[in-house]
Simulated assay, not measured.
Amino acid sequence: MGQIFSNAWQKVFKYPRINIIVVGLDASGKTTILYKSKFGEVLNSQSLFYSYETVDNRELSIKSWDLGGSDRSISSLYKRFYENVQGIIFVVDSNDRYRIEDAYYELDKILKDNQLNDAVLLVFANKQDLPEAMKPDEIARKFKLYDIQGRNWLVQDSCACMGRGYGISEGFEWLLNEIHKKNERKFG
C-alpha cells in the first residue's frame, strides 16, 4: 500500500481491523484520493452510475462508493458498509458552490445513522487548487460541523491531483491517529 498512511499506520495494527468508508457526491475526488492512497498515482476515472473501489488487507479496509448522477436514493447503498465502521471520509469538491447544500444533505444523512455514531469524521475539502475553492472553515460552517458534539472531526484542505496529493497523507494520518486513540480507550 502507498506511503500515504505514514507513522500512524504502524500504531493501528495492534488493534482489530479498521473499517473506513469514503463517500461524497460524484466528481468530488473520492476515486482519485483512493487511487492516490492505493497506487500512489492518479488514474482517470468517471462514474456514469456508480463504481465501487476498495483498499483491503488484514488490518485495514477502505470502501469507496463513487456515485454518479443526482439520484439521492442511491446513497442508501452506502448502508451496506456501515457495520463496524470506525472512520468516515467525506470528500467534497470545494469549488462546487452550486452543490454544497446537496453535499451537506448527504453528509447529514450519513452522520445521523446510528451505526456510525462512534465513527471519526474526516472531510477532504478537495480541489483547493481552484481559484473559487471554499476554505476548510467555510465548509465546516456550511456542514454545521461546529454544532456536532461527541464526534471527532476535521476538515482537511486537499488537492488529490497535485504531486503526491496535497493534504491527503495529513488527513489520513489524522484519521488513523484519532481511531488509534479511540481504540486505546476501548481496548486498553
Rank of each mutant, 00 (worst) to 15 (best):
S70E: 14
G40N: 01
K142V: 05
K79Y: 13
N126K: 10
R99A: 02
S169P: 01
I179H: 09
G87Y: 04
I110K: 10
E53W: 06
D118C: 06
A125N: 01
R99H: 05
D137H: 12
K144E: 04
Y105S: 08
F143K: 10
D137Q: 14
I110Q: 06
W174A: 10
Q10R: 12
F90D: 02
R97L: 06
L130C: 01
Y105I: 03
D118V: 02
I74W: 07
R141N: 05
E106S: 03
R185G: 13
Y35Q: 15
S73T: 15
D96L: 03
D66P: 07
K142L: 14
G171D: 08
K14L: 00
W174R: 12
I62N: 06
T31Y: 06
T32H: 09
R80C: 12
L43C: 09
W174G: 05
Q3D: 08
G188P: 01
T32L: 12
S158Y: 08
T54K: 15
I100V: 10
K186H: 04
T31V: 07
I20L: 11
Y52D: 09
N44G: 12
I18T: 15
S73Y: 07
K182D: 06
Q128L: 06
P131S: 04
S6G: 01
S6V: 01
L175A: 04
R58P: 00
C161L: 15
S28K: 13
A8Y: 01
I20T: 11
T54C: 12
N177P: 00
R99K: 14
A133Q: 08
M162D: 14
A8H: 02
Q10L: 04
N7Y: 01
I179V: 14
E138G: 01
L67W: 07
R141I: 08
R58H: 08
G2H: 13
L25W: 00
L43V: 15
R97K: 13
E53H: 15
A119R: 12
K186D: 02
S45L: 13
Y98T: 10
